Simulated assay, not measured.
Amino acid sequence: MKILFVLPLLFHAGSTVRYTLKFLIAGTSGLHDFPEFMGVVMINEVQFGYCDSNTKTAKPSQDWSRQFVKDHPDQLLLYTQECLSWPRSFRGHIHHLKEVLNQSEGVHILQHLFGCEWDDESEETDGFDRYGYDGEDLLTLDMKTMTWTVPKLHMTPSALGWKTDETVVKWKKKSSISMCLVFLEKYVQYAGSFLQRTDLPTVSLLQKSPSSPVSCFATGFFPDRAVMFWRKDGEELFKNQRDLLPNHDGSFQMSVDLNISLVKTEDWRRYECVFQLSGVKEDIVTKLEKTAIRSNHVSGSGFPTGRVTGVIVGLLLLSVCIAGLFIWRKNNNGFQLVHRDQGALEVDAELQ
């Protein structure tokens, strides 16, 4: 069984003038032939750059971020220095957590998500700082009370080895958010047009076998503010939309399933898949038709593997496609163990 560790999708604003800068850092223990440390910088869910303990250097991921570091080489040097210094800290945290939680050998993952958000119209700003361990929420910093909370463990933050002194926490908030906002504003100057674009998706109907649900799969769209659903006779059916996933080119993909075993053949014409993208008036509607379904159980059906495979390549470049890791899920704003068949990558693996 493979489990994915994809980037968190936590903040979705109704306006294109709201920006989020996120730093996602992960340390691993017990994973062989895999980086002990990884770091990803994201702006509005698009990867700015990446580094890990194997490469030992930070690398920009987009044309605009490459231009930024070309104009600001000190920024690339700063991220590279952070990439070299963080592994020791994470190694110590994981070692301490294993002792406190009475854990033996095995695979363990510590994740740290922090950053800021900024509305350049209202000038409202905010920050966030949280940790996850082995697929569960570990610690969250309450920005209002300036205290660490432990959502699921019956332990205090200090017992886990975290500094809880209010003065230290306030300094951490002020310094980290202030610096984050400075970076974010600079990045927006380079990425503004890229982030404010609108790309419509390619929509396909996919099916693994004649008894499998039909998956309506949309890929290549931007921004990430989108919904998909099936409807019958114009009425929306119960949503079973899968998690939204990033493509390697900065666009996104998602899918929604329909159990056709409950649908009579003569009723197929009554069903259609609807994709709605924020800021676009026209919906993309795909009717349920047998001739439109692509599957590998029929020779020559032509399953569109290009974009989905691109997702795998993109995730590998991010070093986040890891056997045994976890998804920080958008829908519950926290860490949760999620099986591989909840993502579009399962379709790619089984239909090629």
Rank of each mutant, 00 (worst) to 15 (best):
P8N: 07
P8F: 04
L9Y: 13
H12F: 15
A13N: 06
T16D: 13
K22D: 13
F23V: 12
F34D: 07
M38F: 00
V41N: 02
M42A: 09
N44W: 09
N44K: 08
D52T: 03
A58T: 04
S65A: 11
S65T: 14
Y79L: 14
T80E: 01
W86D: 11
P87A: 05
P87L: 01
R91D: 13
H95C: 01
E99D: 15
L101W: 07
N102E: 13
E105M: 05
G106Y: 10
G115P: 07
W118Y: 15
W118A: 02
W118T: 02
S122T: 15
T125R: 04
D126K: 05
D126H: 06
G127M: 09
D134F: 03
D137I: 00
L138M: 11
T140Y: 11
D142F: 00
T147A: 10
W148C: 08
M155G: 00
M155C: 02
T156K: 13
P157I: 01
P157Q: 01
E166Y: 08
W171E: 10
K174V: 09
S175D: 09
C180W: 03
E185M: 04
S193T: 12
R197E: 14
S211W: 11
F221S: 05
A226F: 10
K232V: 13
E236Q: 13
F238L: 08
Q241W: 01
Q253K: 03
M254H: 09
S255W: 03
V256L: 01
V263P: 05
W268L: 11
Y271I: 06
E272C: 08
V280L: 02
V285Q: 11
T286G: 01
T291N: 13
A292D: 14
R294C: 08
G300P: 05
F303M: 08
P304W: 05
T305D: 15
V308M: 12
T309Y: 12
I312V: 14
L318I: 00
W328G: 06
K330S: 09
N331Y: 12
N332W: 05
G343F: 15
A344S: 12
E350M: 03
L351F: 04
